[in-house]
Design a protein around this nucleic acid. Structure first.
Lengths: 197, 197, 197, 197
DNA sequence: CATGAATGAGGCTTCATTCAT
DNA sequence: AATGAATGAAGCCTCATTCAT
């Protein structure tokens, strides 16, 4: 049922989606939907929450799996998982990141929390790459604030690339993961020059 | 009157904004608004168009002004103009980039066109920086497709940084412009390594 | 519910009738009306269609009932049914023939079709009266075009008489049916003289 | 200006016509229209009044002109004038007889009065034909009530024939005038049989 | 539990009508 | 006298939400 809702919400504004559509797509009736999710806001909230869960889980699993065919670099494994998820679950990403600003509206809180969870995952990922045990031995330490900014830029960049991926089917998640991984890593150094400027 | 509309639309979903609010905020009445803009869609469209105009104009002017106190680097001047604009005209940015996906809905076309115009500006900027006469003599030539991707990533990154700027008032547009300028420039090379990978 | 709508539409212009009135008169609410009839146009259309059905059915039944106390003349039985219907269902007639020209507006088509069905019935009636087996053995054959004109004149005349009936309660449908029946029958001959003239 | 209004009102319902259209068609502006006619109702009323005047005048003139090429029969001359008027001034007829029922609405009174004037003319015409000096020496006297009914039937019939005329351009006002004249005259006798029945 | 049926509340839009010029 | 500009008032329609079954 949430699947149906996610699909529906990915197709248009919150207000453009009628509860009836969701019910129909779920093969049931409006009152039943209300029975389970309580209200339209409840439906949307449930979608956001579940999709955030899935995305976080996907990234986390990939990062923790050293046997992955993607390679030994956790950053790259994480990004690959991200791109794969976004490609395979376009609707999820749309609902999670494109349908509502996290700054206003009745869902600001819920959406914010969901995105923060994703962001935390990326922060962890980025931080891990720069620690003493970083795979490339970069060893430079990021203070938490820089890590935050970097993670946000990474997510934002990945978002842009996900769109790119959709419009250019000849690209592969793999290639983009490599690309963004390089970019992000390259950000780890110039930053000092920039802030020093 | 469009000012009022932009402010209103920046505060919530298209559907959450009532035309009456806009009229009141503009110090006039609903029928007058309809007289000038035709319909609610017309209002929104007019907002998007005008804000895109303003943003493009701001960037273009900055890029072309070699006397700018920001420095001799056109990329940096452009980014600085961007951050200044977004900071000073938060609502414009929200309406332009956060309120509607450019992929669906009745505004897809208009919004797409507006964003494309902004993007074209950035593409030009990025391309200029890599030409033979690039300020740092980088001289490497981007093929148009790479320039597109790069520009998108730049806009996306700048977007993320603009949010950051809002939440961290201690940062200045100047510093972030420098930062992103560095990042973008650093992207001009690793790409080859990345794709070669 | 359609009853309520017919009554409402008989009381004033299409535009003068508010959907809410109809809903109230039907003992329900606007959304329910919309649920069943779709739109204001849908309501009107449904009225026209149903009343045409009823009128046609009434005439047809009377014509086919040879045991009728009205007599053996089918033309007269049909006219009597017509006058009885119009007297007993004043609103139906008003909606069907007085509210909208069949030549323009959004209902032209529907209204046209409805009136054509009524007309077809009358044409059949008139034609039957002039066939070889006509009750009075008139036996003169009308070409279809003349039958059309004659039927229209008959309906028009009956319409005028129906108004007359309303303003002069001392007249009976029975008497008028006899009258118009005579008139129409008398039209069957002079026509030739007239066109020959 | 009233010409423009008549044309406009003949094209659709009273409510479908916007005052602005009338003003534009008249080559002036809304406030000017209001200046002269006072209100939308005033416009419509003026139209009805003037067109009734014209129609009555046309019939009266024809009836009184014994030199007319149409012939010596005043009834026929009147009918011919009627058909000619309706053919040449389709809009007038539409506004006068087709746009509003004379039984309800804000114009009931005005429209009623206008139609009554036309009807009075026809009553006079019919009565004259049956007086002692009737051209065909019919000499039978109609009581006023019968004359009223007969006149109404005549107008109604003429109305139907006017429509017919529009749809069948091969017919001429002349032929129809002859036809209806015959019909009406034939009504003068059977009536007794009918009512006696 | 699941649903067909019903509705309260609210939004977009239009137009007759009037000032101020 | 004539008009551009402005608006109060009103109507159609939709949708989230709830009962009664």
């Amino acid at each position: 049922m949430i699947d149906a809702a996610v699909t529906a919400f990915s197709r248009g504004d919150y207000h453009t989606v009628r509860v009836e559509e969701i019910a129909e797509a779920a093969g049931t009736s409006k009152p039943t939907v209300y029975h389970y999710l309580g209200s339209k806001e409840g439906i949307f909230t449930a979608c956001v929450r579940r999709e955030a869960d899935r995305l976080v889980a996907a990234i986390r699993a990939a990062v923790r799996d050293p046997q992955s065919p993607i390679g030994a670099d956790p950053l790259r494994r994480g990004l690959h998982a991200f791109f794969t998820f976004v490609t395979d679950n376009r609707d999820s990403w749309t609902v999670l990141y494109r349908r509502t600003s996290s700054q206003a509206g009745p869902f600001a809180g819920e959406v914010s929390r969901a995105r923060d969870r994703v962001l935390a995952e990326v922060v962890a990922l980025v931080t891990a790459c720069t620690g003493a045990d970083a795979p490339d031995g970069a060893g430079c330490l990021l203070d938490p604030k820089d890590a935050q900014l970097l993670a946000r830029v990474a997510v934002s960049t990945a978002d842009a690339c996900a769109d790119w991926l959709l419009e250019h089917p000849e690209e592969t998640p793999d290639a983009l993961a490599g690309h963004v991984s390089e970019l992000t890593r390259s950000h780890l150094r110039p930053r000092h020059a920039a802030t020093a400027h």
